[in-house]
């Protein structure tokens, strides 16, 4: 198991942003998190990455305890936050160099790793451009590339394709499949329902709880609808048949 949590909870004051969720994700799986804004997707991801301390619950990420061993977890995971988080005043390459560097990679390692990644992602010609001048779709890929340099086992992507055009989104998902083929676990949140179809398995969150969790086909069968969009709407309205 790549990720396994039981009863994971995060309270902000009286408000339970994440309310006793339990799930497990297998190695190589593309696991999707669906939910309206404020459903608790980002908070869950942040707890798994060690950015937030869980209020309750236990679990492991890459085999390490999320409550105690989060510094060990950090070496094993890649994370791409909702907010674009590369430095706009650095070139694409300088960003890569920096993120490789803070993971302790040597210059040579960064060069080798980024050559492989650039080949997959297709960033070579943008290397020396200032990040602020790179189109949004490419920025997302660059951010993904930056989060993959240290060769993490698990990659957390928090709404990676928000604000990106449909073609770039499709290309981005091709990358996600490639990562999964390489044996990496991909944990992804989205509110694009077409993207939900691409996930191996997904869970739907509502008000901090997981209300559905299965593969897209089973979910559609369960609700007897044709698209994930309808699954989502039906499940959120509580119309299970």
């Amino acid at each position: 198991m790549s990720v396994e949590v039981q009863g994971l909870t995060k309270n902000f004051g009286d408000f339970a942003a994440v309310d006793h969720v339990s799930f497990s994700v297998e190695k190589g799986e593309i696991f999707g998190f669906l939910g309206a804004n404020g459903a608790g997707k980002t908070t869950t991801i942040r707890m798994l990455c060690g950015l937030l301390e869980p209020s309750e619950g236990t679990g492991t990420v890459a085999g390490f305890d999320i409550n105690r061993q989060y510094s060990k977890i950090k070496h094993r995971i890649g994370y791409m936050s909702q907010k674009f988080s590369l430095y706009n005043d650095l070139t694409a390459w300088e960003n890569i160099e920096f993120y490789g560097g803070i993971y302790g990679l040597k210059d040579k390692e960064i060069q080798e790793r980024s050559r492989e990644l650039f080949a997959i992602i297709g960033l070579e010609e943008l290397k020396n451009k200032l990040t602020s001048s790179i189109p949004m779709g490419w920025k997302q890929r660059l951010a993904l590339c930056a989060s993959l340099l240290h060769d993490p086992e698990i990659i957390f992507l928090d709404e990676p394709t928000s604000g990106v055009d449909p073609l770039s989104r499709r290309n981005f998902w091709k990358l996600i499949y490639q990562l999964s083929d390489m044996g990496k676990t991909v944990f992804v949140t989205t509110h694009y329902m077409d993207e939900a179809e691409y996930c191996h398995r997904l869970s739907i969150m509502k008000q901090g709880r997981i209300i559905e969790m299965d593969n897209p086909r089973s979910l559609k069968e369960k609700y007897q609808v044709k698209t994930m969009q309808d699954v989502f709407l039906a499940s959120v309205r509580g119309e299970a048949k």
């Binding site: 950090k74 936050s81 907010k83 988080s85 590369l86 993120y99």
Partner: peptide, 13 residues
């Protein structure tokens, strides 16, 4: 403010 801190915090730095 820019959100890059989040990226720093998930790294082992």
């Amino acid at each position: 403010e820019s959100g890059t801190m989040e990226q720093l915090l998930v790294s082992p730095v």
